[in-house]
Design a protein around this nucleic acid. Structure first.
Lengths: 195, 195
DNA sequence: TCGGTCATTCTACAACTGTATACTTCCACG
DNA sequence: CGTGGAAGTATACAGTTGTAGAATGACCGA
């Protein structure tokens, strides 16, 4: 699906080809995880040969690193700021993890590539550089970084159970109920520790 | 490591061999995920040949299904009942996800095998049969099943961030602080929806 | 129109995957 | 003793993996 642009376009356009490969890589790694995709698959989606991946990125691993950076960079993880943060984040979380949603995104990439130790390292670094950093800036009080990472943990958990595994109760539950619970969870982390 | 028993014991003991394979499979799948282990690896750990896996289990996939059942069956997911549930679960969660812990367990198996669609199906079924079922029995009020699965989601998220990825803030945080936050999160799900 | 240069592809390799078929070895029975 | 059947092994196959090396191709300046 999603054939980028035209099937036979772009001849001798280095930058364009590189970008096409990167786009295909983000989608493929998100759908099947680091170990689940071969360089030939990505190359086919980008409309080129497998060897171009090594030419432009050095190796599959380095391509993955760039793809992770692309996927994690946008601030899609934090939706809303200040007092709206928990509610807004909960709402988008629930709508994006709907069983029939085709939305991709960094959480899927994370979950499906977590098995590979090397991929895990790469993602840990990217999280520190992007998501966790931006999110902790929104939080005040002690343990801001830890609370930010726990927010990511809560979201990742919901992505896993509801979207990746498709666990029955979370699939059948009413979205508004789920949103209420998710917001309550995130609100716990929005404010510093109480008793 | 952990060579089961003796290196060359057990000759012509069908039940023992089957069990040795299953034990090795649980450990290997937990450490490297469904796609990350070859049948030859498991066989070597069990001290037998790869073909015995197909002989006793039919296929790698069926072996995985049995391994998942073994790993998910014990009630290790819920530690403590009633009013102690949140605090107890939080405590064991934090201690087991310590960066230097070598503890294995169902959450690691889940996270590292989530990339494979077939493995995901198998695990979803096992969760329904074991963990989510037992856990929801501990909960009262509406949405018991969904709240149980959300508890699993929270735990899975912490396992992912802290133990699998090793994100900095969660690794460096004081365990007692983390326990406090984790308990607060689980307490949200322990009681039915409020506002 | 030629020539060079760089984007792109072809071919190949060695390692690995899951599993089917055929083989060998051992033990308990008669 | 010795034989049948079961426990375990060896070999093989058809795929796939990531990537190295050489060959091909098209475009641009001269």
């Amino acid at each position: 699906m999603t054939d980028e642009t035209a099937p036979d376009r772009r001849r001798r356009d280095a930058a364009g080809t590189r970008q096409a490969i990167l786009d295909a890589a983000v989608a493929a790694f998100t759908r099947h995880g680091y170990d689940g995709v071969g360089v030939r698959d990505i190359a086919r989606d980008a409309g080129v040969t497998a060897m171009l991946i090594n030419r432009y990125f050095g190796s599959k691993e380095q391509l993955f690193a760039e793809a992770v950076d692309v996927s994690f960079a946008p601030r899609t993880v934090i939706t809303g700021t200040g007092p709206e943060l928990a509610e807004q984040t909960a709402r988008t979380l629930v709508s994006r993890t709907a069983p029939d949603a085709e939305e991709l995104g960094p959480f899927l990439l994370m979950l499906r590539s977590a098995a590979s130790p090397r991929a895990a390292e790469i993602m840990r670094d990217a999280i520190g550089r992007h998501a966790a950093r931006h999110l902790s800036e929104e939080l005040s009080g002690p343990d801001a970084e830890a609370r930010a990472e726990l927010m990511l943990a809560v979201q990742a958990g919901v992505w896993l159970m509801r979207r990746v595994l498709g666990t029955t109760a979370l699939v059948k539950a009413h979205p508004e109920d789920l949103t209420r619970y998710a917001a309550a969870l995130l609100r716990v982390l929005d404010t510093p520790a109480d008793g």
